[in-house]
């Protein structure tokens, strides 16, 4: 059994337990052991990077230190955490001057970044540790050609120079993992474009206009659902449709489903074992189509 330090971040455990629940069930079922780290903090995502980049690196490095001490690689669910932690891990491993600077800060808290561990998104764990073939063998309830609009979110892919997850212009990993479950990953306009989520709270009108584009493009392409990996994309597109209804007087009712939920359903987790009532846009149509 492969073990990872599960880095939950802030939003998933406190706002989207349906994501955490599905991910824990699916990954455990596929033979991945998840260890909860003691004392982990916020990963220092873009809002904190906007205040001070050096502080953000120090906070991310602190959390990586916790995994180094536990002798475990890190597994993230949230793409925001994946980005913050991966950038810090790569920069500090590859830039000695910066590492020394950050370690000087960390020494005040009794920590030292050694650069001995990897940060992985759970899709990488599915590809590398579980493997596509083994995953395929575990699919007991194929998703019946469900039309899925894959939306990885920006920070799984970009900045590609540091994240090195997939080809940033023609990514295939997420689509492959959707199709292994028996669904179709459909093409749609501006698939790789941002959801606007990070502008929520500062420029809500612009954020909503960008989110609406995403919904409209997936809807027009005949999607049964949009599948997400990032809790902010989920929020922006799921709750966003309620706001689109009041602001634009348009109703799409397009279910937004975290990939971990689709994965769980396909490998035999019953819908009632998941927390599907946390979706603002109900997923009943998707469940019906899967059968």
């Amino acid at each position: 059994m492969t073990s990872y330090a599960l880095f939950l971040g802030c939003t998933i455990p406190a706002r989207q337990p349906h994501y955490e629940l599905a991910a824990r069930k699916a990954l455990t079922k596929l033979g991945i052991e998840l260890v909860d780290l003691e004392g982990a903090t916020c990963c220092a995502p873009p809002p904190i990077q906007s205040i001070d980049l050096e502080t953000s690196l120090a906070i991310a490095a602190y959390n990586i230190c916790l995994a180094e001490e536990a002798d475990l690689n890190i597994l993230t669910l949230c793409t925001g955490c994946f980005e913050s932690l991966t950038i810090a891990n790569r920069l500090l491993k590859e830039n000695r001057e910066l590492r020394e600077k950050i370690n000087k800060i960390l020494s005040n808290a009794g920590k030292e970044f050694k650069g001995t561990k990897e940060v992985k998104h759970y899709l990488q764990v599915l590809m590398d540790d579980v493997g596509v073939n083994h995953l395929k063998q575990n699919v007991v309830k194929p998703l019946n050609n469900l039309n899925v609009a894959a939306f990885s979110g920006c920070h799984l892919l970009r900045p590609s120079e540091l994240l090195r997850f997939d080809d940033p212009e023609r990514p295939r990993i997420f689509d492959t993992l959707i199709e292994v479950l028996g669904a179709k990953s459909i093409p749609y306009k501006n698939k790789l474009r941002c959801c606007g989520g990070l502008l929520r709270g500062y420029a809500d009108d612009i954020a909503l206009a960008i989110a609406r584009d995403k919904i409209v493009n997936a809807y027009n392409a005949g999607a049964d659902c949009i599948s997400t990996l990032c809790p902010f994309c989920f929020l922006t597109l799921d709750l966003g449709q309620m706001l689109i209804k009041t602001t634009y007087k348009e109703e799409y009712n397009l279910p937004i489903i975290h990939y971990a939920e689709l994965l769980s359903l396909s490998i035999g987790v019953e819908p009632k074992e998941l927390a599907l009532d946390f979706h603002k846009i109900k997923v009943d149509k998707v469940l019906e189509k899967i059968g």
């Binding site: 909860d36 982990a40 903090t41 502080t55």
Partner: peptide, 17 residues
């Protein structure tokens, strides 16, 4: 949910200013 180590974080935030 395991609590965050706020004390350690505060030390880091003080060190970076």
């Amino acid at each position: 949910l395991k609590p965050a180590n706020v004390e350690a974080l505060k030390i880091i935030l003080a060190a970076t200013g």
